[in-house]
Write a protein that binds this DNA or RNA. Structure first.
Lengths: 346, 346
DNA sequence: CTGAAAGCGCTAACAG
DNA sequence: CTGTTAGCGCTTTCAG
């Protein structure tokens, strides 16, 4: 992609002072108020005037000052996105979804992650509150996030279901259903001994629920390991190793996420078991990891971009109507079948 | 980690209006200017006064308005970080490094990625310029970034060497040296036929240079594939497949990055070759991928956190002294030896 | 539809 | 060391 200079409008020949709304008005031969109206796309401006103003804006390379408009309007037209960890790339799609609805409306998004924020020792929302965001998207496990109870800025929780805290707008994936998809896929392939690698946290819990429900619905015996551990690769490795040391006859493993599935793959390799010939493996989240040709991991996709766009719409709605009733939206996930699953050995 | 309410200071019982510097001054029995001085940590304030002001700030839950101070001071105390792609996690360590020096000084950092920014069709720096950042860290390949030539805001290029464009402050890793470490590691293990998976882009080029230099220094014959392709997993796969279909006798592969190395692993697996017994593989970047127990990939670490902190210092320096001579800083990388490398088959 | 006037909350000279 | 005085660039009534 090529970026030409027209939009950057670097240091002009004249003095370095950035043009103000005043300069634009002067050049267009109108008053500052009119420029302000054009900027905000008011319909009450005649076409010739509008064009004159736009021309002046372009010629001057005018760029409205966010600071000034925030101060005057008492709103920043910006929202904050709080995520768990920049290393966990699920937020990228969420952000893309957010932007697809927020960008056209002229909103600014800033992102903070709990891991990095924790270094500073401040409340992770401090930065957002200092910059006076008009709204917040919380895309982190509520238990890890700061208390949201009596926050006076509109917010919506995205991606994770707020299990414990007070009522909030929530846009999330139906993870119980997603886990069901994984189990049903394995059942249809002919597996009868399907183990689940679980862990702590709201998502893991929902996925466990879905696993239990579907396994029982299929008339099978559940087998869960690692329920009280992390959801890291290491935890997946440990849990899977335990699985294949003790319980025999397991032909399929459903991991609470792709990272744990990676750990399971390591354990299988160590035990001399092949994937998918000996043991099928299913992950969750459909990360780039799963898509990788080397891993080629069957996984569940939560459609994070949709979660983002719906969350944006929900937030805009709440900002416009702070007292509207809370809404919770659950989106249906889908299965991405890949090479890590196959029929069990006969 | 527990966040208590003290810093959030949600809607107080009184009216919802946020306290201003004026309220603080009134409560502390001083003038607004004094409060402003305390805020900025001026030494010219008597201790009792300072404490009174601080107490008022705490009691009121006062939080200075960034918009107002930006407007009045004509600087935002914020810098922008431009990265290639949120999916490429190398920026996380850079950001950590940046924050380690910028946070204590009260700076705000906002991050934008070229991929997402491209969706909007705007110049990726537009958002930063609109919010009037005081400085910019460019952590993206210069050819992909918008033109920096006559940008009137101080910036430093981090992580990649600006090969083509004008003079700029640069803080980067010595990738030529890093590639040398990889090759020397393989040579010491006894490898004689060491192939390199390359690709386009400044980093890939530097790594290729380092490879060529070291291979020749060891008296070996260079063997490079994929030089004009991507640096993706798919490209690594294709290049490695070509390698093991045609050229025989290759016992070690040095990929331009970990992702390409992953592609190489897929190709090796397909050819029935084991890692490291038959073929050793070295990546670059020391991503979480490489650390993974399943992949356990020997890789080169660029010490990105140091790049971040040095870049921050460089930027602060340039902001303070815009006409200082340009400086380029190259940091030494190191080798992370793991299980994907071993002596060649005898 | 358009122009004038009054700040938003803070900083940065100054003069006390 | 402290208080006063002007704005920063924009939005928003409110009259023309």
């Amino acid at each position: 992609m090529e970026w030409d200079d027209c939009t950057v409008k670097a240091s002009t020949d004249s003095a370095s002072a950035r043009p103000t709304i005043y300069d634009v008005a002067h050049r267009a031969g109108v008053s500052k108020s009119l420029v302000s109206l054009v900027l905000r796309g008011s319909p009450n401006v005649s076409d010739p005037r509008r064009e004159a103003v736009q021309a002046a804006i372009d010629e001057l390379g005018y760029r409205p000052s966010r600071a000034a408009s925030a101060l005057a309007a008492n709103r920043t037209q910006s929202i904050g996105l709080l995520i768990d960890d920049f290393h966990n790339p699920w937020f990228v799609e969420v952000l893309r979804g957010l932007r697809s609805v927020l960008d056209p409306a002229g909103w600014n998004i800033s992102v903070a992650d709990l891991q990095l924020e924790a270094l500073s020792g401040r409340n992770p929302l401090d930065g957002f509150l200092a910059m006076h965001v008009d709204g917040l998207i919380i895309a982190a496990e509520p238990h890890a996030a700061p208390p949201l109870r009596n926050l006076d800025v509109p917010f919506v929780v995205a991606g994770v279901r707020e299990l414990d805290s007070g009522p909030a707008d929530v846009v999330a994936s139906d993870e119980v259903q997603g886990a069901g998809l994984a189990v049903e896929h394995l059942v249809q392939l002919g597996h009868r001994r399907i183990a689940h690698l679980s862990g702590t946290g709201g998502s893991a819990k929902a996925r466990l629920d879905g696993y239990l429900r579907s396994v029982r619905a299929a008339g099978l015996e559940p087998l869960v390991v690692g329920e009280s551990g992390d959801t890291t690769e290491e935890a997946g490795y440990t849990a899977a190793r335990e699985l294949f040391s003790g319980h025999d006859g397991v032909t399929a493993v459903f991991a609470a996420n792709d990272t744990m599935a990676l750990g399971a793959l390591a354990a299988l390799k160590e035990h001399g078991l092949r994937t998918p010939e000996d043991v099928s493996v299913v992950g969750y989240d459909n990360t780039p990891l799963a898509e990788s040709r080397y891993l080629d991991l069957t996984s569940i996709d939560s459609h994070n971009a949709s979660i983002g766009s719906e969350a944006a719409r929900a937030l805009l709605g709440r900002i416009a109507e702070p007292s509207a009733p809370r809404r919770q939206l659950l989106l249906a996930p889908s299965l991405m079948a890949r090479g890590s699953t196959a029929a069990p050995p006969s």
